[in-house]
């Protein structure tokens, strides 16, 4: 593994860790660590830092849905045009182009079921190029971005030789 790969590995575990600690772990200087991180950012390898939140805990009506979207590709830009339009909505948290039975997989978050349903019928389905949508509501999230939603999954004994 290169130092840059190690940095990504560390930041994926904890993006708030200080450059000082990264430098200690990789046995490099703080300046070197800072430089590698800004290079990763400039190269677009690191595209941002964000909190992974358990939204249900803040608002018990919170819902999250995965929407399968069938799209007819446009002559000029294939799927990109529709995908970018969908991605631009604030409610949309991810958009992926998929192989298989449909074309785009869209994750959206809303304050309640109705909000999500309205978003799909009023904003997503009518878009030029969208042929059909299938909405799956997420019932429970167990793991996201490498993190478990439950703590203390360590099954090892508290103390062992």
């Amino acid at each position: 593994m290169t130092d840059k790969e190690r940095i990504i590995n560390i930041l994926r575990q904890d993006a708030r860790i200080s450059n000082e600690k990264i430098a200690v772990m990789l046995n490099i200087t703080v300046d070197e660590a800072a430089k590698m991180i800004s290079e990763l950012e400039d190269e677009g390898i690191i595209i941002g830092y964000t909190a992974i939140t358990n939204d249900e805990k803040m608002d018990k009506n919170f819902v999250c849905a995965l929407i399968d979207v069938k799209v007819s590709p446009q002559v000029s830009c294939g799927y990109d045009g529709v995908a970018m339009k969908i991605a631009a909505y604030r409610e949309v948290s991810s958009v992926y182009l998929m192989s298989g039975g449909y074309d785009l997989s869209v994750t959206i978050k809303g304050r309640n079921l109705r909000e999500v349903a309205m978003f799909v019928t009023e904003r997503l389905a009518p878009l030029d190029g969208v042929i059909s949508t299938t909405t799956h509501f997420i019932l429970h999230r167990y793991k996201e971005k490498d993190k478990m939603f439950t703590r203390n999954t360590d099954e090892r004994s508290l103390v062992s030789p």
Partner: peptide
């Protein structure tokens, strides 16, 4: 171990096996 197990919500740095 017996002492540590009697305390609630302990975080351990005491195991001799991989995580």
């Amino acid at each position: 171990f017996d002492i540590a197990a009697s305390v609630k919500d302990v975080i351990s740095l005491s195991v001799g096996e991989p995580d």
